[in-house]
Design a binder for these strands. Structure first.
Ligand SMILES: [Mn+2]
Ligand SMILES: [Mn+2]
Ligand SMILES: [Zn+2]
Ligand SMILES: [Zn+2]
Lengths: 142, 142
DNA sequence: CACCATATTGAGATAATGTCTCATTAAATC
DNA sequence: GATTTAATGAGACATTATCTCAATATGGTG
């Protein structure tokens, strides 16, 4: 979770006025359990305009409060916690997302970049598979 | 590149009839230099319907002839050569894409999956940075 | 080869997601 | 409270992709 006074700071996020609608978006996002799409967020706070929701999501990403997951064909999903570099493990069955704090691929990235003369500037790693609870459940999908 | 008789096989791709339109799509794709979006492909062969182009792209992915890149906000881009597992290095300046043949992160993936009780089923690694030619050029964007 | 059964196509409707405009609203300051 | 203008949001627009289903073309069959 994110602490209260950090939240106050986040609300300013490069804007010059702290507004009601943006406050609603931020409060909703930091209280969200698990990941969400932009549309799900919009639906949960219909009193806030879509434009504002999208604008705030961009700011929250820039501020490192949330991170954005591009899971294959689906719409991007957002997750709390993007302050420092990390990766994701996505369950292909239930869609849950597990944060991976340690990078573990830095050396490989540097090696490859050097080999091709690139100046590396970041990377993205996503691991797909079935999570523990989906393996356990073994429910049959008709 | 892909050899001629492999192409003939590819044309069947789970269909029961080899058709003209699909042939056009496949020929165009395998002759494409670099990466392309679905829309670019459609525009280059306007005599083929959009639905057929998209359908064939899906088949070509399933067949491992092409792979699909999800680069952040942009529309997905396609590349020849997805026969075996590999990764990508994307130039953040010119957008060019370099295939990375060796995986190099398998061990890390397995370690992490085991730690969280996942049954791993694939992963995706993308490296971002400036490519050699963009570093060299140093053209100033007004 | 002509003919048939039906797999495949494609024009256009629809869907999903996101961006943009600009009249209106409401922070912040005085 | 009045003023300034940052910020909002309704709705138009854009982009990308999927779906529908009448029309078409393919691969057999006789
Ligand atoms: Mn995360
Ligand atoms: Mn590739
Ligand atoms: Zn990393
Ligand atoms: Zn790999």
């Amino acid at each position: 979770m994110i602490d209260r006074n950090a939240l106050a700071t986040v609300l300013q996020m490069g804007f010059s006025r702290a507004t009601g609608p943006r406050n609603i978006v931020v409060e909703t996002v930091v209280a969200w359990e698990g990941h969400f799409s932009a549309e799900e967020l919009c639906r949960s706070i219909p009193q806030v305009g879509r434009a504002t929701v999208y604008r705030t999501l961009v700011s929250l990403q820039e501020e490192g409060v949330i991170c954005r997951l591009m899971i294959d064909g689906r719409a991007p999903r957002y997750l709390l916690g993007g302050t420092q570099h990390h990766h994701h493990m996505v369950c292909t069955q239930c869609g849950s997302v597990q944060d991976i704090a340690d990078c573990g691929v830095d050396d490989f990235v540097d090696t490859v970049a050097e080999r091709f003369g690139y100046e590396p500037d970041g990377h993205r790693l996503e691991i797909y598979g079935r999570c523990a609870s989906c393996i356990g459940g073994e429910r049959v999908t008709s």
